[in-house]
């Protein structure tokens, strides 16, 4: 194992985060804080409780998930796309590192960043609403697994993208609608029966539901389904990345 290479990539990527602190951490935290102000305090105070939980508190797991998903995908996709765009990827490809080490470095850094953002958002939420985490260990585990799996997804996206437009296409056109329709701001039980069934095809439902369970002990779907869904998603991403490196898809001719 080339530990020095993993550390080098990890440190390099983390340094980029701290160099662009405003864009990397402060910006997502501010935008999420605005959600709390609007939905939690302004609108939330006029909303009924959902499953005996104040609306402001209810949306906390969804908002964390919303930001963490977007940040994981964006961090990882940018981390691998930018060297491709600049041409500096040659150095990684010519270095004595395995694919696993490359992934640990890039995905590890991207997941760390989004995990930190997730925790900061949780702390920010406590300033606006009453938040209690019933199963903290599960919450941290789910959050970490989500950060890793969606960073893997972002890594795939970054390799696939040929330009900046494609890089933004998937997060904007697919991920954002899935997150908003995945129960970030509502319980899927509030939907008409037919939409309750349809929405179960949205994988993000399981993530938000799982995280919500770790906060309140109740959720739209069982925590087991949530863990199963995210586990499957992680395995699919790892399989695709394995194929990418085996074939050299958009990396090596």
């Amino acid at each position: 194992m080339n530990f020095f290479a993993i550390i080098a990539i990890y440190k390099f990527e983390m340094a980029r985060t701290f160099r662009t602190l405003l864009q990397s951490i402060i910006s997502p935290v501010i935008s999420t804080a605005l959600y709390f102000v609007v939905f939690g305090s302004a609108i939330g105070s006029r909303m009924e409780q959902i499953e005996n939980i104040e609306y402001g508190s209810f949306i906390v797991p969804g908002l964390i998930m919303l930001t963490v998903l977007m940040q994981s995908v964006s961090n990882a996709s940018f981390a691998i796309y930018f060297p491709k765009f600049l041409g500096t990827i040659y150095e990684v490809l010519s270095a004595p590192i395995s694919y696993v080490e490359i992934i640990i470095g890039y995905v590890g850094a991207a997941a760390t960043k989004s995990f930190i953002i997730g925790i900061i958002i949780l702390m920010t939420a406590t300033l606006f609403v009453d938040v209690q985490v019933k199963h903290p260990a599960i919450m941290l585990f789910l959050l970490a697994l989500t950060c890793v799996s969606f960073s893997l997804f972002g890594f795939i996206l970054g390799i696939w993208a040929k330009n900046f437009e494609q890089l933004n296409l998937v997060p904007m056109l697919i991920l954002t609608p899935l997150v908003f329709l995945g129960g970030s701001f509502y319980s899927i039980n509030m939907l008409p029966p037919i939409w309750q069934q349809i929405t179960l095809f949205n994988p993000v439902v399981y993530l938000i539901s799982g995280l919500r369970w770790s906060f309140f002990g109740t959720a739209d779907v069982s925590i087991h389904y949530s863990l199963f869904a995210i586990g499957i998603f992680t395995i699919i991403c790892i399989t695709i990345i394995g194929w990418i490196f085996k074939t050299g898809y958009r990396l090596r001719n």
């Binding site: 080339n2 020095f4 290479a5 080098a8 990539i9 390099f12 340094a15 150095e91 990684v92 004595p96």
Partner: peptide, 14 residues
Amino acid sequence: MNAVSFSRGLFGKP
């Protein structure tokens, strides 16, 4: 300095 140090690490050197 950071760019050069990064390259050294990438090639597995302390």
